[in-house]
């Protein structure tokens, strides 16, 4: 697999990423924050929905890790490293929820919104396939999106609700701590996984579906079916 193949796949993934990243500003909760229509209750609802979602986040990555077989064990470790970082997220979300006058016991019953249900089901389905390297692209999208969303949203919500840093630790953390996802993805794509026939197309497809569902869970904040 040549460097050019990796670059061309990166182009396709970057287009997926920029298309969906730029749609963030059209998501109602972000538009409301920008246009000063947001209430603290809306922000708490988002924190609660994200709490329910990230609980699943570390689980599907762990599932993906367990689906990796020889000779790709190095990539298994990479999935596991991601699971660890996801794991820490819900503690920060609980902290912010409490700092915004939320009752922490609400979080015990937090449900995934209908967008999160779809996103989570999709991720578990992909993660259960043998050697689910198509998820590398999805992780790039989620983390790239996650980071840009975090920055956009942290600024908008802080301005709109005059919040203190203590109330926005989760989004601030993700906005400020920017591990080099690009290096990691390039290394993974260059490691031979693209030798599997059809893998490049599968990576792009999984990334595209994941990006759409990621936006869906933001559009569906507070909707539980």
């Amino acid at each position: 697999m040549s460097q050019t193949d990796v670059q061309h796949l990166m182009r396709r993934l970057t287009r997926v990423w920029t298309e969906f990243e730029s749609r963030l500003l059209t998501v109602p909760i972000i538009r409301d924050a920008r246009e000063s229509r947001l209430r603290l209750a809306d922000y708490r609802m988002l924190l609660k929905d994200h709490y329910a979602q990230v609980l699943d986040g570390s689980a599907w990555i762990a599932r993906a890790a367990s689906s990796v077989t020889r000779p790709h064990l190095e990539l298994r470790s990479q999935f596991l490293r991601h699971a660890v970082t996801e794991h820490r997220d819900y503690a920060m979300l609980a902290h912010d929820y409490t700092a915004c006058d939320g009752d922490p016991s609400d979080l015990d019953a937090a449900r995934k919104n209908i967008g999160s249900v779809a996103l989570s089901a999709w991720m578990f389905q992909r993660a259960s396939q043998p050697n689910p390297f198509d998820l590398m692209g999805a992780m790039f999208i989620i983390e790239g999106l996650g980071q840009w969303f975090a920055r956009t949203f942290a600024e908008a919500v802080t301005d709109a609700l005059s919040l203190t840093d203590e109330q926005v630790t989760f989004y601030r953390y993700h906005a400020d701590h920017d591990p080099d996802h690009l290096n990691e993805l390039e290394a993974a794509l260059g490691s031979g996984i693209l030798d599997t026939p059809g893998m490049a197309d599968a990576i792009v497809e999984t990334a595209t579906v994941t990006a759409r569902l990621y936006l869906l869970q933001l559009e569906e904040v507070g909707h539980y079916g």
Partner: peptide, 20 residues
């Protein structure tokens, strides 16, 4: 200026599309 920074990625994405 904050928004300008958020626009950069779509310029890059569009450029890649035009190359393609």
């Amino acid at each position: 200026l904050k928004l300008l920074y958020q626009i950069f990625p779509v310029w890059v994405g569009y450029y890649l599309e035009v190359l393609d």
